[in-house]
Amino acid sequence: MKRPGPLLTLLAGLVLALFLLTLNATTGTRSASSYQEQSPTPAPARGSASLTPSPTPSRSRAADADYAGRTDDDAAAIAVSVRGGRAIAYFCDGRTQESWLKGDVADDGALRLTGSHGAKLEGTLEDGRKIAGTVEVSGVRHAFTADRAKKPSGLWRATATVRSAKIDGGWIVLKDGSQVGVVTRDGEPSPAPRIDPRTGAVTVDGHRLTARPATP
């Protein structure tokens, strides 16, 4: 009886080769699958809107207008004219005391005006209807409220040279038609004559002058 040695050896080699081939194919597939499963999923890109800062809302500038009223102690009158974010104010007792003040109007309606000899005004523009605050002149502080004025109410001023004297007159016309004013002649104050609120005409020391609305 012949030994099947060579044939068995050949068959064993074929089986082993087939086994190794199958094992290699299976291992390669699993390695690829494992690599795909472990690969991190890219995070979704954030929208550009989340990176854009929200715009800061802007505040509107105080509207151009005139205001006139009296101090709470009824000692004097006060008028304020607002134009283009600037303000000019006039404090006057109608006899010998007066003060012109000026400054900026903040976006929130706050006023901080200053004048000569330490005069100052602090107030708040309330809804465009009135200005409430305090004014300090000659070391005395007065609370005041000035309502929005309609022509001819408001602040008037006239400057001229009469008989070599420098004339500077200020008038506050209130809503009831009454007037409070002072005229200075070379710096010397005195009660002002009435103006015609329709035209601004006024006579000072026999000379006809024209007062005009005062603005910053």
Rank of each mutant, 00 (worst) to 15 (best):
K166P: 00
T199Q: 11
R163Y: 15
D196A: 08
G154A: 07
G170K: 08
D176Q: 12
V204D: 04
A146E: 06
I167T: 10
P152Y: 12
A158G: 02
G181W: 02
G206V: 00
V180H: 00
A132W: 09
K151W: 09
D168L: 13
T159Y: 08
T199L: 11
G177S: 13
S138A: 15
H142Y: 15
T199N: 09
G139D: 00
A132V: 13
R148L: 12
A143Y: 12
R212A: 11
T199F: 13
T134L: 05
A211G: 11
D176M: 10
A158Q: 05
K166V: 04
K166A: 06
I167M: 13
A211Q: 14
V140F: 14
I172T: 08
W156E: 05
L155R: 04
P189L: 09
A158H: 04
A165T: 03
V204H: 09
G177A: 14
T159Q: 11
K175H: 15
A192I: 05
R157M: 10
R208Y: 00
T203I: 11
S153R: 15
G181K: 05
S164V: 07
V180Y: 01
P193H: 05
H207C: 01
V140N: 12
G139P: 05
G133P: 12
T161C: 06
D176P: 09
R185Y: 10
P152R: 13
R208K: 15
G170W: 06
P191T: 03
G200P: 10
K175L: 14
A160I: 02
S178W: 06
R157H: 14
G200Y: 14
A211H: 15
D186K: 03
A201F: 00
R212M: 12
P152M: 11
A158E: 01
R163P: 03
A201V: 07
I195Q: 04
D147R: 15
R163L: 14
H142L: 07
A158I: 02
I172L: 11
L209W: 00
P193D: 03
Q179L: 08
V180F: 01
H207F: 13
A146S: 05
